[in-house]
Simulated scan of single mutants.
Amino acid sequence: MRKNILITGASSGLGAGMAREFAAMGRNLALCARRTDRLETLRDELLAQNPDIRISIGALDVNDHDAVFETFRAFEADLGGIDRVVVNAGMGKGQPLGTGYFYANKQTAETNFVSALAQMEAAMELFRAANSGHVVVISSISAFRGMPRNLTTYAASKAGVAALAEGLRADVMDTPIEVTTIYPGYIRSEINEKVKKVPFIVDTATGCRAMVRAIEKEPAEASVPSWPWTPLGAAMKRLPLRIVARMA
């Protein structure tokens, strides 16, 4: 059992939702995000409901890459080890290419890919030393194909991080270190709360429960919730681009 779990981007949305699920299972948590006031509130909530677990919190902007390594090492020292790292922190800000919003697309690409690389590097530094661990990368169902409009850069960054995870999986194959890529479908959270008429969307609690259930099985890859995203994800890889574009 992975007892000590580190989650980035844990102050809200999917990160906070996964923290609630893992806490209810009796796991110790290392939670980090930029908004420490929210982390403190979440910690107090979880400890009130699960008094036997340990929770360590820390401020972290994942775009400060040196701080990523420092924070992960500090969590390891505080909890006496880290067994699983969930690379969750990310952003969905983006605009169609060529419309004057390069800064927004650049920020999304850097946060979702380069900063995910930093988190994976920091996690693997701990896990290679321990010869054990579980790296979980949160990608997106949109990573399966190129997507139009505001999703173009986001989908590309999530495809990139999924390829990064697959490369790491190949590198540590047949070792005690496991790598899982999670492809969430449409789950309501702060990143998409203003988006209307989203097909097959589920609430945060339902989506996070499905994510944690999949993570616990430690597969190479999983689309969640499994229905309808496992068959739809497979279809997205094969459908004509014109049809896929209508799903955005």
Rank of each mutant, 00 (worst) to 15 (best):
residue 205 A to G: 02
residue 182 I to E: 05
residue 82 I to H: 07
residue 3 K to H: 13
residue 149 R to M: 09
residue 120 M to K: 04
residue 173 M to G: 06
residue 235 A to F: 12
residue 47 L to Y: 00
residue 12 S to T: 11
residue 24 A to H: 11
residue 222 A to C: 07
residue 78 D to S: 15
residue 16 A to V: 03
residue 49 Q to M: 11
residue 117 L to R: 03
residue 154 Y to R: 00
residue 127 F to M: 10
residue 121 E to A: 11
residue 170 A to S: 12
residue 26 G to L: 07
residue 197 K to I: 08
residue 2 R to F: 11
residue 92 G to R: 04
residue 120 M to S: 15
residue 109 A to H: 02
residue 14 L to H: 03
residue 75 F to D: 03
residue 26 G to H: 01
residue 232 L to F: 14
residue 41 T to N: 11
residue 8 T to C: 06
residue 72 F to T: 06
residue 29 L to Y: 10
residue 178 E to D: 14
residue 136 V to D: 02
residue 204 T to I: 15
residue 87 V to M: 07
residue 37 D to A: 11
residue 181 T to C: 09
residue 213 R to Y: 10
residue 102 F to M: 04
residue 14 L to W: 04
residue 107 Q to A: 15
residue 92 G to V: 09
residue 184 P to A: 10
residue 185 G to E: 10
residue 34 R to S: 05
residue 226 S to F: 06
residue 111 T to W: 11
residue 122 A to C: 11
residue 184 P to R: 12
residue 33 A to K: 05
residue 21 E to C: 14
residue 130 A to K: 12
residue 129 A to K: 14
residue 243 I to V: 15
residue 19 A to E: 06
residue 155 A to S: 12
residue 244 V to L: 03
residue 41 T to D: 12
residue 189 S to R: 02
residue 229 W to I: 05
residue 155 A to Y: 01
residue 62 V to M: 11
residue 153 T to D: 00
residue 230 T to A: 14
residue 155 A to M: 01
residue 126 L to M: 09
residue 39 L to M: 12
residue 65 H to V: 09
residue 241 L to Y: 13
residue 139 S to P: 08
residue 135 V to G: 00
residue 72 F to H: 11
residue 196 K to D: 13
residue 244 V to H: 08
residue 207 G to Y: 06
residue 68 V to N: 04
residue 150 N to W: 06
residue 103 Y to S: 14
residue 183 Y to S: 01
residue 134 H to Y: 07
residue 144 F to T: 01
residue 206 T to C: 06
residue 187 I to C: 10
residue 209 R to E: 14
residue 214 A to K: 09
residue 180 T to E: 09
residue 126 L to T: 04
residue 110 E to M: 13
residue 192 N to D: 09
residue 165 A to H: 06
residue 42 L to M: 10
residue 23 A to K: 07
residue 94 G to M: 01
residue 40 E to L: 13
residue 151 L to G: 00
residue 220 A to R: 14
residue 182 I to N: 01
residue 22 F to D: 06
residue 31 L to K: 01
residue 185 G to L: 09
residue 213 R to A: 15
residue 48 A to W: 05
residue 185 G to P: 07
residue 161 V to R: 06
residue 224 V to P: 05
residue 37 D to G: 04
residue 169 R to Y: 04
residue 84 R to D: 06
residue 16 A to R: 13
residue 103 Y to G: 06
residue 217 K to Q: 15
residue 154 Y to I: 00
residue 179 V to Y: 08
residue 49 Q to R: 14
residue 117 L to D: 07
residue 53 I to G: 10
residue 181 T to K: 02
residue 4 N to H: 15
residue 183 Y to M: 03
residue 122 A to H: 06
residue 170 A to T: 07
residue 125 E to W: 02
residue 120 M to C: 15
residue 218 E to C: 12
residue 149 R to Q: 04
